[in-house]
Simulated scan of single mutants.
Amino acid sequence: MPSKSAKPARPEPLDKTYTRRIAIVAFPGVTLLDISGPAQVFAELEAIELPGPGYSLSYLSTSGGLVPTDVGMMIDTAPIDSIGPGEVDTLVIPGGPGIWQIRSDAKLMGWIAQALPKARRIASVCLGAFALAWTGILDGKRAATHWRYCPRLQDSFPKIRVEPNAIFVKDGRVWSSAGVSAGIDLALAMIEEDFGHTTALDVARRLVVFLKRPGGQSQFSTVLAAQASDVEGRFSALHAWIIENITSDLKVETLAEKAGMTPRTFARTYVNRTGMTPASGVEALRVETARLLLESRQIGGVVEVAKRAGFGDDERMRRAFLRHLGVSPTEYRNRFAGG
Results as ranks from 00 to 15, higher is better:
residue 95 G to N: 01
residue 327 V to G: 05
residue 25 V to G: 02
residue 327 V to R: 10
residue 5 S to T: 14
residue 80 I to H: 01
residue 154 Q to E: 14
residue 232 E to I: 06
residue 42 F to H: 01
residue 3 S to D: 12
residue 80 I to S: 01
residue 134 W to K: 04
residue 47 A to N: 12
residue 117 P to Q: 09
residue 113 A to N: 07
residue 140 G to L: 14
residue 82 S to T: 07
residue 217 Q to I: 09
residue 151 P to D: 09
residue 160 I to R: 02
residue 261 M to P: 03
residue 19 T to L: 10
residue 248 S to W: 04
residue 274 T to Y: 00
residue 282 V to F: 06
residue 97 P to W: 04
residue 48 I to W: 02
residue 164 P to A: 10
residue 217 Q to W: 03
residue 51 P to L: 11
residue 134 W to G: 03
residue 139 D to H: 14
residue 153 L to W: 02
residue 258 K to E: 14
residue 289 T to G: 01
residue 86 G to E: 09
residue 54 G to S: 08
residue 59 Y to V: 07
residue 126 C to I: 11
residue 81 D to Q: 04
residue 251 K to A: 15
residue 274 T to P: 00
residue 193 E to A: 11
residue 193 E to Y: 07
residue 127 L to I: 15
residue 319 R to E: 06
residue 232 E to Y: 08
residue 166 A to F: 03
residue 94 P to R: 04
residue 146 H to S: 10
residue 240 A to F: 12
residue 283 E to W: 02
residue 125 V to I: 15
residue 187 A to R: 03
residue 65 G to C: 10
residue 339 G to T: 11
residue 314 D to C: 02
residue 261 M to L: 15
residue 182 A to C: 13
residue 334 N to F: 07
residue 195 F to C: 11
residue 85 P to I: 01
residue 156 S to V: 04
residue 122 I to W: 00
residue 262 T to C: 05
residue 29 G to H: 00
residue 229 S to T: 12
residue 200 A to V: 09
residue 232 E to W: 05
residue 237 A to T: 14
residue 173 R to Q: 08
residue 300 G to R: 13
residue 202 D to P: 01
residue 298 Q to R: 12
residue 248 S to Q: 10
residue 159 K to W: 01
residue 178 A to M: 06
residue 227 Q to D: 12
residue 264 R to N: 13
residue 204 A to W: 02
residue 123 A to L: 05
residue 23 A to H: 03
residue 191 I to C: 04
residue 300 G to Q: 10
residue 64 G to M: 06
residue 92 V to D: 03
residue 143 A to S: 14
residue 134 W to E: 11
residue 55 Y to F: 15
residue 283 E to N: 07
residue 99 I to P: 00
residue 56 S to Q: 15
residue 266 F to Y: 13
residue 120 R to Y: 05
residue 172 G to I: 08
residue 45 L to D: 03
residue 176 S to D: 02
residue 52 G to W: 06
residue 224 L to T: 10
residue 242 I to L: 13
residue 81 D to K: 03
residue 243 I to Q: 13
residue 315 E to W: 09
residue 333 R to E: 13
residue 176 S to Q: 04
residue 164 P to F: 07
residue 262 T to G: 12
residue 139 D to V: 09
residue 118 K to L: 15
residue 104 S to A: 12
residue 15 D to S: 12
residue 83 I to W: 00
residue 47 A to M: 09
residue 84 G to H: 08
residue 160 I to W: 01
